Simulated assay, not measured.
Amino acid sequence: MDMRKIKHLFSRFQNIIDDEISLMDDRGYVIDSSNPEKVGDYDTVCSFIEIDNEILSMNDKLYYSIHTNYGNVLIISINGNRVENRRLLQLIALFLSENLNNMTKEDFFKGVIQKEFNHDEIRELSSKFDLEFDSMANAIVIRLSEEIIDEAYSVITSMYPEEILIRLNSNTLIFIEIINSDHDYEDLEQSIYDTIFSELLYEANIGVGVVAQNLSYLHESYEKAKLLIELGIRFTDSKKIYYYNDLLLPILIDNIDESKLKEILDCTNSNVKSMLLDKELFLTSTKFLENNLNISDTARKLYVHRNTLIYRLNKIQNITGLDLRSLNDAIKFNILMVGYKFLKMNSSD
């Protein structure tokens, strides 16, 4: 259940009603109240009397229940058994019911990725929206600028009118891909990127989450995709679409304690750290690794002569003691370079 939304709606009434008003679950647990001291306590009335479809008066206090579309019961109470409070209680209940039950499929998926529903609620709501709970799904996170997000939303929805596209905030869209559905798309994320670039002349950053085995794990796919964008922007210069397998090294380093990582790097005899300060050699090493240690391909991508590239590789070897033409040395170099880059970026945050 989206408790944040419920509390936000409920808070609107707390400042305009003089009498104490509280919101509880069906056990009487006080979720929110105009009296902060009551939050977290239990109202014992709710534990032994069923409150359903009518206003109940007990001990000069009024109670009224709300049934949500996802099977939960909420109870509102207000102090003071007066006619005006009875009317207020019914109005508040009506307002909350209409807002809580007017859920769209987009609202549902947004709640799933933000962990606003539990496992059982997701299963129940899936059937409401004609979704298979056990469907495998993937979250594709699209990071844009605030200036073009509206246009990008329109472009993507016109391309895929039957799919779910969520506007998460002012610079993030999330495309929900249901795997093995009636609408399977090849190279989906590349197609989204190319369309945004061709239509809006903007290079979006796109993180492709891992496939969730059912809808209740979709939030993990979203979290992975979000992490990929953060690491991809930091550690890759030429790519704008980020996959988990392509960023394994930054992911591993991101999970190492920073002090431990610094200790490991300090124990090496290499001078890789200085490479980060030399833009020409840093670009050369990055492109050489990206092109699988292929001299001809790297020279062509850098627009330099083959002999110029070899000269630079020799210079890198003289500085660091690592020959990037050797696979073992290239692996060591890459690990050290990513590690130092990680520490450098963290220190400048």
Rank of each mutant, 00 (worst) to 15 (best):
R12P: 00
I16P: 04
I17K: 09
E20Y: 02
S22K: 09
S22A: 14
M24C: 15
S47Q: 15
F48M: 12
S57M: 11
Y63H: 12
S65L: 07
N69V: 13
N72V: 06
L88V: 05
A93W: 07
A93F: 09
E98S: 12
N101V: 08
F109N: 09
N118P: 06
R123S: 09
R123V: 01
F129H: 08
D134A: 13
M136D: 08
A137L: 09
D150Q: 11
Y153N: 12
T157N: 11
T157S: 09
M159T: 03
R167F: 06
N169A: 10
S170D: 15
D182K: 14
Y185Q: 03
I192H: 04
I192G: 01
I196V: 08
L200K: 07
N205A: 10
N205C: 06
K224T: 13
A225P: 05
K226H: 11
F235M: 02
P250Q: 03
I251T: 03
I256Q: 01
D266A: 12
C267Y: 11
N269A: 00
M275W: 03
E290A: 02
N292I: 01
L302I: 01
T308R: 04
N314A: 04
K315S: 08
I319V: 06
G321M: 06
S326E: 13
S326D: 15
L327M: 10
V338P: 00
L343I: 12
M345V: 00
D349K: 15
